[in-house]
Design a protein around this nucleic acid. Structure first.
Length: 263
DNA sequence: GCGAAATGGGAAA
DNA sequence: TTCCCCTTTCGCC
């Protein structure tokens, strides 16, 4: 489930399990030849910025981007025999981790990492993320807000689920040009996005149909009740009953309520 | 067993 | 805007 919260969870889990340990890095699938460059080194730390993951082994950094299909499985004890296409495997005395299907899995220098980070917008899950910086770009763009939210140079870490849900929660028309979005409306949306993604970081799920600050107090939300509009195309809006709509925007499916989200 | 879809993004046109 | 890549899972024969 690779939106930003997933990467921050992975960073945290890998720090907890591998930081300070010698890691044996390999590529059972053989498609990550550079594994040898970091194999046997001590892992310093792992950080996430948006949907990018950076694992530092001294001056060599493993950069991972899961893309749409990438997945990580990990465990303690001895690693199981590799099943399927394992691009990268980590094994340490504390456990193991397998990476499958990533868009990117490469070894970079610190300056190459800086270059990637420099082109990313603020990450709502970063400690002092600056929503104003994102708004500065939004406010001078004619592009639809739904597209801007998915642009990692504007906001890093938002994917198709969070963008559809955050727009619904604030009743924003997804096709509204960025420059027509009020600063105060954006400020509320950003604040809510931070809370929502923090809840996702805590729970490992994207649940948007209740207030983010209450997700721990209530019983588990059923899968079919977790979203307002995402993949609810044709189903009645939870607020007005109108059929939720779906349309492709920049090759990604966009879901919204045509009556709740206007103007 | 096969085709489609899935939380992405980069390069090419 | 269109194509292409990555892998697994699910629905439908």
């Amino acid at each position: 489930m690779p939106e930003g919260h997933t990467l921050h969870r992975l960073a945290r889990a890998h720090r907890a399990q591998f930081a300070g340990h010698v890691v044996h890095v390999s590529s059972p699938q053989q498609r990550f030849a550079d594994a040898a460059l970091v194999d046997g080194r001590v892992l310093d730390t792992v950080e996430a910025h948006g949907k990018h993951l950076f694992a530092a082994f001294g001056d060599r950094v493993v950069h991972v981007h899961l893309g749409l299909f990438g997945k990580v499985t990990m465990g303690t004890g001895a690693p199981p025999p590799p099943v399927g296409a394992v691009r990268m495997r980590w094994v340490a005395e504390t456990g193991w981790s397998d990476l499958r299907g990533p868009t990117a899995c490469e070894v970079l220098s610190p300056s190459e990492v800086d270059a990637i980070r420099a082109r990313l917008g603020p990450d709502p899950l970063a400690p002092r993320a600056d929503g104003e910086r994102a708004f500065a770009r939004i406010a001078r763009s004619r592009a639809p807000i739904a597209g801007l939210l998915m642009d990692q140079a504007v906001v890093a870490g938002v994917g198709n689920v969070y963008r559809a849900e955050i727009l619904f929660r604030h009743r924003v028309d997804p096709f509204l040009p960025g420059r027509q979005l009020d600063a105060s409306r954006w400020a509320h949306l950003w604040q809510d996005l931070v809370a929502l993604m923090r809840a996702g970081l805590r729970t490992g799920r994207i649940v948007t149909t209740e207030r983010a600050d209450r997700t721990r107090q209530r019983g588990p939300v059923r899968r079919e009740d977790a979203h307002y509009v995402y993949r609810r195309h044709g189903l009645p809006c939870r607020c007005c009953g109108m059929a939720i709509r779906m349309e492709e925007l920049a090759a990604r499916k966009l879901y919204w309520c045509p009556t709740c989200q206007v103007g």
